[in-house]
């Protein structure tokens, strides 16, 4: 059975645009804002949002990518390696962080990311932006900015495609 496209290119762009506008609304002036993308697709989405902010405000908001594989509690023997070297590690203390990921599902990835962030600094606030919220939370975590809510069955898979690595922008339900 073919994959079902739930967000096409144009809707995906619009979703990112709307998230950007909402980030502006909540962070008046955009001061002390840092975007943190969760690898891999979250990182690209973070850069897209930073591009958009730059178009509007003419200022480049810092973007940091984190790899949280080693922070996941469902992976045995996890340890605290962010996959970042010192240069890539931004000072996030007293900053307003927007954490960015492609899909919000159980919430465990986000929890791990929160752990990781707190591990490297003491942000003033942390907000969460996701392109897709598919439900089925296992933790008390809620996104502040959602591109699109897509109710799904447990057995379905959501795949986010991004131009940078997948050659197209789309969200599909994979059967």
């Amino acid at each position: 059975m073919a994959n079902k496209e739930v967000l096409d290119n144009a809707s995906l762009q619009r979703a990112l645009t709307r998230i950007t506008y909402e980030i502006i609304e909540r962070n008046k002036g955009g001061e002390d804002l840092v975007l943190v993308g969760i690898k891999t697709r979250g990182e690209f989405l973070a850069h897209r949002i930073a591009d958009r902010l730059e178009q509007l405000e003419g200022v480049r908001i810092p973007v940091m990518a984190i790899d949280i594989t080693n922070f996941r509690d469902d992976i045995p023997d996890h340890h605290d390696d962010l996959g970042l070297n010192q240069a890539e590690r931004l000072n996030i203390s007293e900053k307003n962080i927007v954490l960015i990921d492609d899909v919000l599902f159980t919430g465990r990835t986000i929890r791990a990311a929160l752990d990781a962030l707190i591990h490297i600094g003491r942000p003033k606030t942390i907000a969460l932006a996701v392109l897709v919220d598919r439900g089925h939370r296992e933790l008390p975590i809620r996104a502040d900015f959602v591109g699109k809510n897509i109710p799904t069955a447990q057995n379905e898979k959501i795949k986010v495609f991004v131009q940078e690595i997948d050659g197209k922008d789309a969200v599909e339900i994979v059967h």
Binding site: S11, R14, V146, N149
Partner: peptide, 15 residues
Amino acid sequence: AVFADFFETVEDYVE
């Protein structure tokens, strides 16, 4: 598309 933006904003707001 402006209306699509508006209705997405409305959904988000309601949510």
